[in-house]
């Protein structure tokens, strides 16, 4: 590692406040993940994700499966969740 990079690394490490730096394998998800999981758990509530297409399914595969909630339901869970499906042009 060059001197420059060592300095750089130290600088970055010291500027990392708790929870803001890189994290190894976090067992939790982002704020969208939390709100989505909670909305699904409420009977009769349909979440609408203003996000990319995968933000719902991504949480399903990870947080929700691993947390035992599975697809949630009876409406709006799993692949039934409506989304705005943002892509590049948006």
């Amino acid at each position: 590692m060059s001197v420059n990079q060592k300095e750089l690394k130290e600088k970055i490490s010291s500027s990392d406040s708790l929870g803001l730096g890189s994290i190894e394998g976090p067992k939790y998800s982002c704020t969208l993940g939390g709100a989505y999981g909670t909305a699904l758990a409420v009977y009769g509530l349909v979440p609408l994700l203003h996000s990319g297409l995968g933000c719902g399914l991504g949480q399903l595969f990870g947080q929700l499966y691993a947390g035992g909630q599975n697809a949630g339901g009876p409406v709006g869970g799993g692949t039934s969740t409506p989304t705005t499906g943002l892509v590049e042009e948006h």
Binding site: L49, G52, L53, G54, C55, G56, L57, G58, L60, F61, G62, T79, S80, T81, P82, T83, T84, G85
Partner: peptide
């Protein structure tokens, strides 16, 4: 385009992450 879309996986999350 669709007037209603449902979540279906993205370039990253359908295949690569797992």
């Amino acid at each position: 385009d669709r007037k209603l879309q449902q979540t279906s996986g993205c370039v990253l999350n359908f295949y690569l992450t797992v």
